[in-house]
């Protein structure tokens, strides 16, 4: 209950920045929107053997998934908290930094998810796309669990990226590189099934498809029960690895923290 009240209090703060959140959402809309146009045109001739409903549902869900499942706190962690010293206010409180950051970041996802749902309704009407979702309640619940794990995975990954600033002065280049890798391996540019087989194999060995591609595919109903269970298990494993790594890296990095400017 106490943690829930902390979440609610943070939501008030995020709600104050609704315009900023909307602008970021509109920016994130641009990429999947362009890809939706491209793939809709390509799939019409059916030369690539792609199901138009599946591909258009995928890209529409990417609008929602990109804004709801992908955390974006790495720059705040690196620049504001570590380099400019705002981490001080978190360290002085008897609650873990990870949790406080989580309770701040998650509300942006909820707010942007709201924008995402509105965008999906508008776009599906404009493009006359009938969305195809998983209909079985069990599959739907498992797909939603996969989405929650995907967000936790993305959040912890971004925390890990952010805390590299304990060692690095310039982090922007690393974040840009990570963004490109994420775009390709998460399935933002092209669904994983359309990637060259070697690249698809590489992607499957990384945690990235488990942040976006597989949860969205699960929502469209692309997996058997066994396939879905495997995805959940792999997501949980990656989350464990990420969280342990975060604990170790944060523990080492905090000894280097200088609280400069504070």
């Amino acid at each position: 209950m106490r943690l829930f009240r902390i979440f609610l209090l943070h939501f008030q703060s995020i709600a104050q920045h609704r315009t900023r959140s909307l602008v970021w959402f509109l920016l994130s809309l641009f990429n999947p929107f362009m890809l939706l146009l491209f793939w809709t045109a390509s799939a019409k001739d059916n030369q690539l053997g792609i199901d138009l409903t599946v591909i258009s549902t995928y890209y529409l869900l990417l609008v929602l998934g990109g804004s709801t499942l992908m955390a974006h706190q790495e720059e705040d962690v690196a620049v504001m908290d570590i380099q400019k010293g705002a981490l001080v206010k978190y360290l002085l409180r008897p609650i873990p930094y990870y949790f406080m950051r989580f309770s701040e970041e998650m509300h942006y996802r909820i707010l942007q998810g709201g924008y995402g749902i509105v965008a999906i309704i508008i776009l599906s009407n404009i493009f006359q796309i009938s969305l195809k979702f998983v209909s079985d309640p069990l599959f739907l619940v498992l797909a939603l669990v996969s989405c929650v794990l995907a967000y936790l995975l993305s959040f912890t990954y971004k925390m890990l990226l952010g805390i590299l600033a304990f060692w690095l002065i310039e982090t922007r280049a690393i974040f840009e590189f990570a963004e490109v890798v994420t775009l390709i391996l998460c399935g933002f540019l092209v669904p994983l099934d359309l990637l060259p087989s070697w690249l698809k194999l590489v992607a499957q060995l990384t945690p990235f498809p488990y942040m976006i591609y597989y949860p969205l595919s699960a929502l469209i109903g692309q997996f058997s029960l066994y396939g879905l269970a495997s995805i959940l298990a792999i997501q949980a494993c990656w989350l464990g690895v990420f969280f342990l790594t975060y604990k170790l890296v944060f523990g080492a990095g905090i000894k280097r923290f200088t609280a400069v400017g504070q």
Binding site: R5, L9, Q12, S13, Q16, H17, K89, R93, P94
Partner: peptide
């Protein structure tokens, strides 16, 4: 730890909301 001119208060919300947050945290 109180540092002059350094802020733990939420900038856009009344100070009361930060007090309430600290009530939960502590």
């Amino acid at each position: 730890l109180v540092m002059g001119q350094k802020n733990q208060l939420w900038w856009d919300l009344p100070a009361m909301e930060t007090f309430l947050l600290n009530k939960e945290i502590y």
